[in-house]
Design a protein around this nucleic acid. Structure first.
Lengths: 228, 228
DNA sequence: TCCGATTCTGGAATGACATTCCAGTCCGTG
DNA sequence: CACGGACTGGAATGTCATTCCAGAATCGGA
């Protein structure tokens, strides 16, 4: 009679249900806080049941992350590379554990969707077709990698004192550095103190997209008849 | 007499020695393969001794990663943002576990050195001073984040069949996708198959640095007397 | 409706680790 | 050469992921 009276049992388990619960727990406790014990309690089941649906914890987290990516792609953000990238950033800011699992190989379904969307937008530029792949991938890498780093940093910094406090302390350290060894940082301390993470992401994004424009320009003039 | 005849004892432990051994083991076995047990064996000591020098495993890995960053900065790569970024990429490609620990807050000593170098180079552009911080940070984020992702992917992909095999399989999957749902990927499969990771990094870097140039140009013309 | 095969479940082992504790040892100083 | 703090080795602890397996649910066919 190892079986309990089979009552509180949640309807039926499925890969989807497990993934959804994982996202919840991940949001609540972060990646380190997700344990199979917690998950079995939340889903009122046992470890074996979970392992029937997912191969292991990595598989589970990848699945959860791809589900978040699915959400990000659902929003009507499609118009331009700029809005698409920002939609990704904003979504992952709400799920800081997720971004670092997006760029992994092999890519999960929704990561592929993102890359395809980026590629399709890149294909609309005047860049020559043979540059489409590297360019699209570069943008994809930028968006996923930088988002991963910034969001996980935001999550790490938060627990110990408010973000402002942490930044203030860090800025103070920068100011105290030797100006000869760190000429830039000592000057930039103030900027660090009151920078905004999202603005920071946008700055990088604009840099990258401006690069795209310049490369278009270069090619336009390169094909101009009037040249050496 | 829990003490053994005190003979094979390695000279003397220190934070540096522990870090160096950690780098070795990390290179050999990857991040998952580094355990305190292995480390005690390599250093012929006990866990307590290690914990006297490092706070915990995170601390240890951060320390090891910053040591790698130190190496990267030692090479005479300083001339331009381009060569500096490539020096970083090349170094971390040899230590794929390390890059993901560089961008973390609070920044470790050598990460600060890198940011300062980037900032100093940015300060030499014609960008207005108030853009220096965001620009430098954007470049720093790009280099560390993208390197982290690419290098860890390379390390992950390698174990299962050669890189070429993995790419070929992936490319085959892309080709098999529905062309309506994935118009870009189905076309790009061939590019994926024979792309080069380093070229890919360079493509992104060039995009970013071209963006820097375009922003300089914009400002130059913006301050020109002849405008609307 | 009953039956066997297949799909799923719950929970009890198992085995790896990180981390803590502490009894000692080593070494520089006075 | 005795003292105290720096340092060491290794045993003990507790937390997890993962495996195993005895059964329960479910479903298609007879």
């Amino acid at each position: 009679m190892p079986q309990t009276p089979a009552k509180g049992r949640t309807a039926r388990l499925s890969r989807e249900v497990v993934a959804a619960a994982a996202v919840e727990l991940l949001d609540e406790h972060g990646e380190r806080g997700l344990t199979f014990k917690l998950l079995t309690e939340r889903l009122k089941t046992g470890a074996g049941a979970l392992y029937w649906h997912v191969a292991n914890k990595d598989d589970l987290v990848r699945l959860a992350a791809d589900r978040v990516m699915g959400d990000a792609l659902t929003g009507g953000a499609d118009a331009s590379l700029h809005t698409l990238a920002l939609a990704i950033y904003d979504t992952f800011e709400r799920h800081p554990w997720a971004a670092s699992h997006i760029g992994v190989v092999p890519p999960q379904p929704n990561a592929l969707r993102l890359l395809d969307r980026i590629g399709t937008l890149v294909a609309k530029t005047t860049l020559p077709p043979e540059r489409h792949f590297v360019t699209a991938t570069a943008i994809f890498n930028f968006v996923t990698s930088v988002t991963a780093q910034e969001s996980s940093n935001a999550a790490t910094a938060a627990p110990g004192g408010s973000r402002d406090t942490v930044l203030a302390e860090l800025a103070a350290q920068w100011e105290a550095l030797d100006p000869d060894a760190f000429p830039f940082l000592t000057r930039a301390a103030a900027d660090l103190r009151d920078h905004d993470d999202r603005d920071q992401f946008v700055a990088g994004l604009d840099l990258l997209l401006d690069g795209l424009r310049l490369q278009e320009l270069k090619l336009d003039t390169a094909t101009d008849p009037d040249r050496p």
